[in-house]
Design a protein around this nucleic acid. Structure first.
Lengths: 123, 123
DNA sequence: CGGTATCCGACCTGATACTG
DNA sequence: CAGTATCAGGTCGGATACCG
């Protein structure tokens, strides 16, 4: 059943719904550097299991954030890419990320900066 | 035990962690219109139980987003207010909200606009 | 009035095994 | 290589009852 369709009161809820998934932020982050194959994503996120990865990718696809490109061949090949629509969200989230990093600085001090240095992109 | 201190890889994770709670967005939203007493918040969000409200407020407080003002008196009086630090986040989230609203338009069409009209503030 | 304690169910995530 | 199925564990939110 579950007719719990209590829709959002404010825009933030809608956005949150989309990136709430534990890994979605990181997945999208990795896609900002370019189209990726499934196993590439797996290598980039070793702690993320196949199942959950697929799951989260499906949701992101459903929300129109990413595009799934299927090469019909053997062995299978699938690539994921941020859609034009998705880029709109990402550009916005960029400032959120900056805030988040500053927040980390405040809360954890320098420790938080370690990982930051590992990437060029902010998001 | 649980030494799962796998800290964030990117800023977005930190921010998400803060507003991930199901009600946090809405709570903060209501506080944007000014300092509120506990029972005022409860009236504004009838579907939110006392326990969860307190819970989410505590977390927001821990993260420095809101301030808890305790009047030491009988009967008790407590007020919640967005901190200066919290406003920093909110200003940023504002553009996220706009995106969210547009997303709603895209996904649900006009239906999504109903609630939008009920408030002056974007967030 | 504001908050804590306890219990429970739903959901989300993860481990493992298997399919085309 | 990419994805599905199944099952188990943890976390979160919600209902209820009680305390200062």
């Amino acid at each position: 059943m579950k007719e719990n369709t209590n829709k959002y009161t404010i825009g933030i809820e809608a956005t949150l719904e989309i990136i709430r998934g534990k890994w979605k932020g990181i997945i999208v982050y990795h896609l900002t550097t370019g189209r990726k194959r499934t196993y590439e994503l797996r290598k980039l996120m070793p702690n993320l299991t196949q199942k959950v990865l697929t799951q989260q990718l499906r949701e992101l696809e459903k929300d129109g954030i990413i595009t799934r490109i299927i090469y019909n061949q053997i062995p299978p090949k699938v690539e994921y890419e941020i859609s034009d629509y998705g880029w709109g969200l990402i550009n916005i989230l960029d400032s959120v990320c900056l805030w988040g990093e500053e927040h980390l600085d405040k809360v954890y001090g320098d420790k938080a900066l370690v990982l930051k240095a590992e990437s060029d992109v902010n998001f």
